[in-house]
Amino acid sequence: MAEVKELVKELVDKYGRERKNLLPVLQGIHLETNYLSKEAMLEVAKQMDLSAAEIYGTASFYSFLDTKADGKYKIRVCKSITCEMAGKSEIIRTLEDMLKVKVGETTEGKRFSLLETNCLGLCDQGPAMLINEEFYTQLTPAKVRKILGEYIRNKY
C-alpha cells in the first residue's frame, strides 16, 4: 500500500495536518482512486492524527465520498421533484435496461454504478444526470442511449 501512503502524504503536505483540511484531503484521495479505501482512511488517520472512526463518520456523511469501490463511472440521476416531473423514471428505466443493474448497483467488472441523487441544480433543464464530472441535461431515452453508448464504446 505504498502508493496510498504516498498519495496521502502528498495531500497532507499540500493542505496541512489540521482537522480543517480533512475534506480536501479526502476529496483528493477520492479524485485519484475513485473511492476511499479502508487503507486510505487508516493512512489519513495516521498522518493527520485522527481516529479512524471519526474519519469514517465524516466521510459517510457526504454523498460524494464513497467508502466502497463502485463503478469507474458513477451515473447520478437527479431525483428531485422537477426532474421527476420531467421524466426521470423513464431515464432510470432506460439506464437499468442498458446496464442490466438496478439503482444502487454496480455493473459486473465495476464499470458503471447507477445512483440517484438529490437536486443537481439543473431544474430548468431536467431530467438531468451526472456521469463522474460531466453533466447531461434535457434527457430523453434516446439521448441516454446515445450518451451511454458512447461511454460503452469509447471510454471503456
Partner: peptide, 20 residues
Amino acid sequence: HVNALAVTERGRDMRISTFM
C-alpha cells in the same frame, strides 16, 4: 480520548458505529 465510536451516515441512516 479513544474515539472508538463515531456518528456515521446521515439522516434516516444515521447511527452510532465504528470504523467501517
